Simulated scan of single mutants.
Amino acid sequence: MQCVGQRGEFRDGGGLGQCVLESAVVGGSGGVEQVPSLVGVDSLDILVSNAGIAIGGRITETKTDTWQKALDINVLGSVRGLRVFVPKIGKGGRIVLTASAAGLVHAPAMATYNATKAATVALGETVDAELRHRKISTTVICPQFFKSGLADSLTGDDDAMDAVARVLLSRTWLTSEIVARRAVKGIEARRTGVTPDGFATFSWYSKRFTRIPYLFLVRAIGWAVARQVRRSEGKALV
């Protein structure tokens, strides 16, 4: 089995194999297509696309350039990786894309992040349908906020919403180890979508099966966010 990434070890059944990971800049017009050590990989069993940055903020506060950056990394980063490596994945291989519960359930003041993660979910479902005839499965991981380095990548234009996101990312009980362990089970089962925690699963099923209460809830959250911003900025709510 071959992997692309930071050098380390992995367990495949009872055996121990080597995993070699190369880091690459996924943004911009180049990215993985211009890294010889990546392009030179002849065959691949599992491709994991984990690139992403966190960008929150109200629609009126987020600049177009920020949208472009988020799209370039969160969406096109995966697209570039798929274009390079899908032809090298053999029969029975697996593709894993890291999205977010935000790609399924769309909370207010997160338009940029929601849209890019929803696009990642759509990308994964599409690729899964395209490649199943080769027995290649695609799994999209959609966790809620969990403790990781994502807070360090917050680069939005709305400072108030970035502060809220940092709190959510730091105070959650969910860790990257828990998410990874549960995600692996979904990958092994070749599930197309995986919500690796109770909150993400509950939110997604609430949206699907109790649509009206779900809409009331997200709109209530929108009002709560607006009141919080009004208090922090000392402005009247319009």
Rank of each mutant, 00 (worst) to 15 (best):
F146A: 05
S203G: 06
C3W: 09
V229P: 04
V127H: 03
M110I: 00
V48L: 10
G5M: 02
N50H: 01
R171H: 10
L71I: 15
I187R: 00
D128V: 00
L97F: 06
L150V: 12
V35N: 07
K135Q: 11
V238N: 10
A24C: 15
G17C: 01
V225I: 15
V39Y: 05
G15K: 06
G17N: 03
R94D: 09
A129D: 12
V179F: 13
T126G: 14
F199K: 15
G193C: 15
R80L: 07
S29E: 15
P143Q: 06
Y205E: 06
V140Y: 11
A70N: 09
K88Y: 07
S49Y: 01
V41E: 04
D128R: 01
L217G: 13
L47Q: 02
V194A: 06
I55P: 01
L44R: 02
A189W: 02
F199V: 13
L16N: 10
Y214D: 07
I59T: 12
G198S: 13
T210R: 08
L44P: 04
G31T: 02
V32E: 01
R182K: 15
T120A: 13
E233I: 04
R134H: 14
W173F: 09
L38D: 00
R83F: 01
M1F: 09
A24Y: 08
F146C: 03
L215M: 12
R7P: 14
T60G: 09
N74A: 07
T66Y: 03
A183T: 15
A163P: 00
A189K: 15
S49H: 06
A183H: 02
E22H: 14
F10H: 06
S170Q: 13
G124E: 11
V39C: 11
F145N: 12
C142W: 04
K235D: 05
P87W: 07
M1N: 08
A118N: 05
Q6R: 15
T139A: 10
V48E: 01
G30K: 08
W204G: 13
E9P: 00
F216T: 08
T201A: 14
D128S: 12
A183M: 05
P108R: 02
V218C: 00
L97A: 05
A165E: 05
C19P: 00
R182G: 01
F202I: 07
S148M: 00
Q34F: 07
A183Y: 03
R208Y: 04
I59V: 15
D45C: 03
C142M: 07
K117V: 04
G14S: 11
G8R: 12
A70W: 06
K91Q: 08
R166V: 05
D162T: 13
